[in-house]
């Protein structure tokens, strides 16, 4: 065996290792459009349904990242994705105003629902969302073992909507978190999970929760929960797509992101979105709105 000092050998191995790493890095640069999407668009299967159509039409891979609105916006701010598809109007407008996104383009909507146990122990059936929340807080503070509420607690679009409803009901969100209802061992609980898992937990805990109608329909088969509050202006749930502004992060592909936006609001795809879920659930999960803000 040739004589070689340990040092040379180590350096040689280090060079090999670095070479392999670099080659992997080069291999990994697959051209793809990365989209961070809110969990409700993913859990309903809408992306799985649209993805092959987009890939075929534009000949580019679509990489879907499953994230809540909070983390999706963070990915967008850091330039790690090319577009975001989310549902929180206030934060979306802020995101665009801050220069991170090009334009907010609504492409579909549905409604939020407050769902709960079929026997409705707090008696909120048919109330407006604000009144329902007031009632839940009253009854829940008295009997937190029986009246429970599961909150997403993850800064998602649904969580933001829940905070809006509490505000409309006269409670700043901090007061909800500090209420005796939330301090009780049971009662109001923030779980920090996606919509699907939150529905499953709510079902196990015999609790109430706020959900988008699409995810609820997609999960309904395995749930005992029933919709209790379904009408009210506050319950409108609009999904938008925003292409990430390449000015902040050169290297993001605006052209392909714009293709995605155009794709989502094209008449053909809008029709597909409007029909999505009809076969399986009997009703559409989303109502298309082709780039315009839907009106209540």
């Amino acid at each position: 065996m040739r004589k070689m000092s340990i040092k040379t050998k180590v350096i040689a191995l280090a060079v090999i290792a670095i070479a392999i790493i670099v080659s992997i890095i080069l291999m990994a640069r697959v051209p793809a459009l990365k989209v961070a999407t809110t969990s409700s668009l993913y859990d309903t299967g809408l992306w799985g349904y649209l993805q092959p159509r987009f890939e075929e039409k534009y000949g580019v891979k679509l990489h879907i990242l499953y994230a809540g609105t909070g983390i999706a916006l963070e990915y967008g701010k850091r330039g790690d994705v090319h577009a975001v598809a989310i549902h929180d109007k206030a934060r979306e407008l802020q995101f665009v105003a801050d220069g991170y996104g090009v334009e907010r383009v609504p492409f579909a909507y549905n409604y939020f629902l407050i769902v709960g146990p079929p026997d409705d122990p707090a008696g909120i059936k048919g109330l407006t969302p604000e009144d329902a929340c007031k009632k839940l807080m009253e009854e829940g503070s008295e009997d937190p073992d029986r009246i429970r509420f599961v909150s997403r607690g993850d800064d998602s679009g649904t969580h933001a909507k829940e905070k809006d409803i509490w505000r409309a009901a006269g409670f700043a969100y901090a007061t909800v978190q500090e209420s005796s209802w939330a301090q009780a061992r049971e009662g109001y609980a923030e779980v920090g999970s996606g919509m699907g898992p939150t529905l499953l937990m709510t079902n196990e805990m015999n609790a109430y929760t706020l959900t988008d109608s699409g995810t609820f329909l997609a999960y309904k088969g395995g749930l005992a929960l029933v919709p209790l509050v379904e009408t009210g202006e506050l319950l409108l749930n609009v999904y938008s797509v925003i292409a990430i502004n390449p000015e902040k992060h050169p290297g993001t592909d605006l052209e392909m992101a714009n293709n995605l936006v155009a794709f989502l609001i094209s008449p053909e795809i809008q029709e597909l979105i409007g029909n999505y879920g009809v076969e399986e659930y009997g009703v559409p999960l989303f109502i298309p709105c082709a780039g315009a803000e839907p009106e209540e």
Binding site: H63, K77, R78
Partner: peptide, 16 residues
């Protein structure tokens, strides 16, 4: 991450 020191590589969310 693109906002991070090695963001130029563009390899976040890849097997690498």
């Amino acid at each position: 991450s693109r906002a991070g020191p090695l963001g130029e590589l563009g390899i976040l969310f890849t097997p690498a």
